[in-house]
Design a protein around this nucleic acid. Structure first.
Lengths: 329, 329
DNA sequence: ACACAAACTGCAACCGATTGCAGACTGCAT
DNA sequence: ATGCAGTCTGCAATCGGTTGCAGTTTGTGT
């Protein structure tokens, strides 16, 4: 298809080596020659073939990104962040969507890891052992998942939950329901821990209603159980669940926030469009992607000297219309 | 990082050529040899480096996907479809997000086109000429955009609009407002044409209110103008706009569908969660991605013999709660 | 005019694969 | 034993780049 370095060399009347140097080590070649090369490059619309370069240098200028579901706005946000930062570093991104399937996941990661310099793994479902095995083969950065010793970017789930609880307590709530996500999920566990710590510190009650799918339907399914707890406020695993909950509560004639306050986690675009607009703990998604890329590239540059192997991101409570004063008993 | 074909060859006690053949043309090598090679491959966890293969065969087994915004659920859906089908064909996918910026777009496409076999361009903003130029360099499949002679997958926008109008007319509406998307957008233009044809055929009135950003904010901005038209129903460029409209109408005390019926286009996940749940013309997103990959791969296989160069996707009206009988005057 | 260093540029090998061609080996008929 | 076909396997060239090393210019001092 495109022109090769030899085409450029011929047109500029120099050798391929000179073209290569003119492009990557400009100060090493005579200004006049450099100009001729530049003209030839321009005229042919030449761009080096990264794959070929990768064979020599061992760096392809390509990273991989593995996400459970691109259609999930949370992951889409992270993907966008990864994208943006990678582009700035002139690095291309392979994206793979595992469809939330752990089997697909490990296969995809293996296949991907052969053709990229490193991989960003978003909320991987695989076991710690599997992840460790992958990290043997290639450089890995985890996002939203901590696993023994592997570098990663994580959200401070405990603190986010603390903020949510503090907000509700300030509004007078004394009994707070908790709708968990998938039991196996790393962040469900951490959010649960954060909640227990927070309610204990603030001397209020926690009423967990179990584990639900991290979806709109999951929220719909949880609604009745939440009402049954008698809690005046509820915190859900994520915004999708909260929005499903809102819908079912509306159907049941439960007023939000009049009868029940609702807090989600993530702050996806949909949340401010919900009715009532959802109070939620915003988890910075693009930032996670940006940081993951920075971390990965620095590890790639010099695995030893990397100043840090972990990033920590803080959630921020966004107060909207789904929370209000606890109803008078 | 990973083992090379020579490592495998050494371990199996054969030459690199034999390993290569054992993997790609198994019947050509002796069963016993093949078994030794297979064992060595297994032991080393070897996977061929696609980039190197690409240099020889001219096929890297990689395609590119360019979308305006990954965080937009419409494009995320298409990306998922592309993903899924590509994986089935054992093809990797580079994804690039242009952030809706035409300048970024052309640069990205150029860079991408050097390292992939072909590119899927989603709703590209570039001019027909720019697209034609790109198609010179690499194999291109357009999605949601027709440009002179280039292969593509498109939605039948005219028919979708016809369905929407027919539904509203059946409900007794006689004056329908139309909130357009970006003026430069190909699909805005086609939807406009479809609408004009439909209202003419059904003898009702169309009240266009201009062009708006294809976002929640765009819908908020359009609301007052829609009300001012005196129409009893409105069709919006897409669901995001419709949902923004819904929010502002709610704020204005306009009842939907009591006072005004609202129809969107796309059917993103958010639409069934809106209040009221949004009636919309569902545009199959994953299918578009699937078809685009099939088309691209067939063009790559044999540019001449490709049985078809275009795919057509039909929208389907999903009736929910945002449309109802026209109010009695 | 001559020697010598500095600044460029080209040659050739290499990265990890694939593939046409030719050589090696096997088995079988003569 | 010899010839011959058929099956496997290895050699070597190739893809598009990069880079160590050596050769060619050029300019400067004497």
């Amino acid at each position: 298809m495109g022109a090769t370095i030899r085409d450029v060399a011929r047109l500029a009347g120099v050798s391929a080596s000179t073209v290569s140097r003119a492009l990557s080590l400009p100060e090493m070649v005579n200004a006049a020659t450099r100009a001729r090369v530049a003209a030839a490059v321009e005229q042919l619309g030449y761009a080096p073939n990264r794959a070929a370069r990768g064979l020599i240098t061992g760096r392809t200028g390509t990273i991989g990104l593995v996400v459970p579901d691109l259609a999930n706005p949370f992951f889409a946000g992270i993907a966008k962040g990864v994208q943006a930062r990678a582009r700035r570093h002139d690095v291309a991104v392979f994206v793979a969507d595992t469809d939330e399937d752990p089997t697909t996941e490990s296969g995809l990661i293996r296949a991907l890891s052969k053709q990229v310099d490193g991989v960003v793994l978003c909320s991987p479902r695989g076991s710690d052992d599997e992840l460790a095995a992958i990290a043997q083969d290639t450089t890995v950065v985890l996002v939203n998942r901590a696993a023994a010793g592997l570098p990663g970017i994580n959200y401070d789930n405990e603190d986010g939950m603390r903020q949510a609880v503090a907000h509700l307590v300030a509004l007078g709530h004394r009994r707070i329901a908790w709708v968990g996500g998938p039991a196996s999920s790393w962040s469900t566990q951490h959010r649960g821990v954060g909640l227990r710590n927070a309610v204990q510190a603030l001397h209020v009650e926690l009423a967990p209603v179990g584990n639900f799918a991290p979806t709109y339907e999951g929220g719909m399914a949880a609604a009745d159980q939440v009402v049954a707890t008698g809690a005046t406020a509820v915190i859900t695993y994520n915004d999708l669940v909260a929005i499903g909950l809102l819908a079912r509560l509306h159907g049941r004639g439960v007023s939000v926030p009049g009868d029940l306050s609702v807090v989600g986690v993530d702050d996806i675009a949909m949340s401010r469009m919900a009715r009532p607009a959802l109070t939620t703990v915003r988890m910075p998604k693009q930032e996670a992607g940006l940081l993951a890329v920075e971390l990965l590239l620095s590890l790639l540059d010099d695995p030893e000297a990397a100043t840090t192997t972990h990033g920590d991101l803080h959630g921020e409570l966004i107060v909207r219309d789904s929370t209000g004063p606890a109803p008078q008993q």
